[in-house]
Computed example of a mutant assay.
Amino acid sequence: MGCLGNVLWFVFGGAVSGLSWCLAGCLWCITVVGIPVGMQCFKFAALSFFPFGKEVQYGGGAGSFLLNIIWLIVSGLPLALEHLALGAALCVTIIGIPFGLQQFKLAKLALMPFGAEVY
């Protein structure tokens, strides 16, 4: 079911979500200092393209907290609002609820991506 869910997800909104993460990663990679942040964006773009069957665990320390604050100000809010809007739109129908829940998972990830690990 995870494979079928991922294929349907990619066709009905996952491509847009993943491309948003890729765009954020490209923008962060413009500067040398932002390359680690951009690489994190590309890692989460892969999750955004195919999220079914994967879990996110949050952790980290003070460094992750500081990076999350900078991330939230610069790129996190637009991505989180995009995922929240798409998730709300998908949850209107019963069939779209699993897809909406994946968007909400990605919205939480967009708010605090540093210190998070994908399993």
Rank of each mutant, 00 (worst) to 15 (best):
V37Y: 07
A107I: 06
L77P: 03
C3H: 08
L27A: 11
S64L: 05
I73A: 13
M112V: 13
S48F: 08
P51V: 01
I30Q: 06
G100L: 07
C41Q: 05
E82H: 07
G63E: 05
F65S: 12
Q102S: 12
A85E: 11
F49Y: 15
M39K: 15
L77M: 07
G60C: 12
F114M: 09
P98I: 09
L47P: 00
Y119F: 11
E117I: 04
I30A: 10
G2T: 13
G13H: 08
C29K: 14
K108C: 07
W9Y: 04
Q103H: 15
L109W: 00
W9I: 04
I95D: 10
A89W: 10
W71M: 01
V118D: 05
L106I: 11
F42N: 05
E82Q: 14
G100R: 00
I69N: 06
A85Q: 14
N6K: 08
C26G: 10
G18F: 00
M112F: 08
P98F: 07
W21I: 01
F42V: 06
Q103F: 13
P113G: 11
S17N: 05
L84Y: 13
Q40C: 14
C91M: 15
V32Y: 07
G2A: 10
L66Q: 03
G59V: 09
W28C: 14
G25S: 11
G38R: 07
V16R: 14
Y119P: 02
W28M: 11
S48Q: 06
F114I: 03
C22T: 04
A45V: 02
S17H: 10
C22Q: 14
C26D: 08
G63R: 09
A15H: 14
A85P: 02
T31N: 09
G53K: 12
